[in-house]
């Protein structure tokens, strides 16, 4: 398998909290396809900084409330 990026996100949970927002609706809001949103949720793709900010703005939270660094060798500092 391809190496997963060391970044986790809670996009799925945030979508569910925001009125069961669909993956397609989120994708449209930030300018990516539904499949790209799916890839982000499954951890197969880390979005660009711009898209990360767009996602956090859609949900009205900070970027670090959506994304977190997970690699054990490089803990948050």
């Amino acid at each position: 398998m391809a190496k997963r990026p060391p970044i986790e996100n809670c996009i799925r949970e945030l979508r569910e909290k925001h009125g069961q927002m669909s993956q397609a609706a989120l994708g449209e809001a930030i300018g990516v396809t539904r499949q790209t949103v799916i890839a982000m949720e499954q951890g197969r793709y880390s979005p660009s900084l711009e898209s990360a900010f767009r996602i956090s703005r859609v949900f009205g939270v900070g970027v670090e409330d959506v994304f977190s660094w997970t690699e054990p060798d490089h803990p948050d500092s």
Partner: peptide, 11 residues
């Protein structure tokens, strides 16, 4: 719809 959409950042 998908056919007309431009490639996004991942694509």
């Amino acid at each position: 719809g998908e056919a007309e959409a431009p490639a996004d950042e991942r694509e």
